[in-house]
Amino acid sequence: MKILRFVFPGLTALTLISLAACGPRPTPAQQAEQAEKAVLASHDTLMARMDELYDLRQKLQGAPGVDTVTAGRHRRALLTADAAMMDWMHHYQRPADSIAGPRKLAYFAVQQLKIDSVARLMTRSLDSARLVLQQAAASPKPSAQ
């Protein structure tokens, strides 16, 4: 009886894992649909940050304490991130319903790589622009004596 007490839970877990593995797998069409949702969710997340790009560009333009070369470099990085997002949106085209699931899945995999690249570019440019502005705000101001 003591053996059954230790073996039974293990067999139960093994049975549940086996049943889960035998469960219905998503079809290629369902996988493509999930991949499309993931790509569009990434897009939506980035779109929510587009105002940040604009705001930081404006702040860099008139920020006291930031030299014009540094401000210009960071503003261009923000513009590049903005352009990358616009470029991705202009080139993204949802595959026709007549396209086979595996081809759609491949298309969405490439689009995910592209939108992830845009996300890295955007995050990097936003973070560095914020850092420049924070450093300028924290630097000692010359006194007017």
Results as ranks from 00 to 15, higher is better:
residue 120 R to G: 05
residue 59 K to C: 12
residue 29 A to Y: 04
residue 99 I to V: 15
residue 20 A to F: 10
residue 52 E to Y: 08
residue 89 M to I: 09
residue 3 I to A: 07
residue 117 S to E: 11
residue 114 K to T: 03
residue 2 K to F: 04
residue 34 Q to S: 09
residue 96 A to Y: 01
residue 130 R to K: 15
residue 29 A to V: 07
residue 72 G to I: 13
residue 93 Q to V: 03
residue 103 R to H: 10
residue 53 L to I: 14
residue 70 T to Y: 13
residue 70 T to H: 12
residue 45 T to Q: 07
residue 96 A to H: 08
residue 18 S to T: 11
residue 22 C to A: 12
residue 99 I to C: 03
residue 47 M to V: 14
residue 51 D to Y: 05
residue 91 H to R: 09
residue 76 R to C: 03
residue 83 A to S: 08
residue 92 Y to P: 01
residue 81 A to P: 02
residue 121 L to D: 07
residue 119 A to F: 00
residue 43 H to D: 06
residue 32 A to I: 01
residue 44 D to T: 09
residue 19 L to C: 12
residue 79 L to Q: 14
residue 88 W to M: 04
residue 10 G to Y: 08
residue 37 K to Y: 03
residue 129 A to S: 15
residue 3 I to K: 08
residue 86 M to P: 00
residue 36 E to W: 03
residue 28 P to Y: 04
residue 68 T to N: 10
residue 86 M to S: 06
residue 5 R to H: 03
residue 127 D to P: 01
residue 92 Y to G: 00
residue 126 L to D: 04
residue 12 T to Q: 00
residue 34 Q to I: 02
residue 102 P to F: 08
residue 16 L to I: 05
residue 121 L to A: 12
residue 61 Q to M: 12
residue 9 P to N: 07
residue 15 T to D: 01
residue 70 T to G: 09
residue 105 L to A: 04
residue 131 L to S: 12
residue 102 P to Y: 09
residue 51 D to E: 13
residue 93 Q to I: 03
residue 93 Q to G: 07
residue 124 R to Q: 09
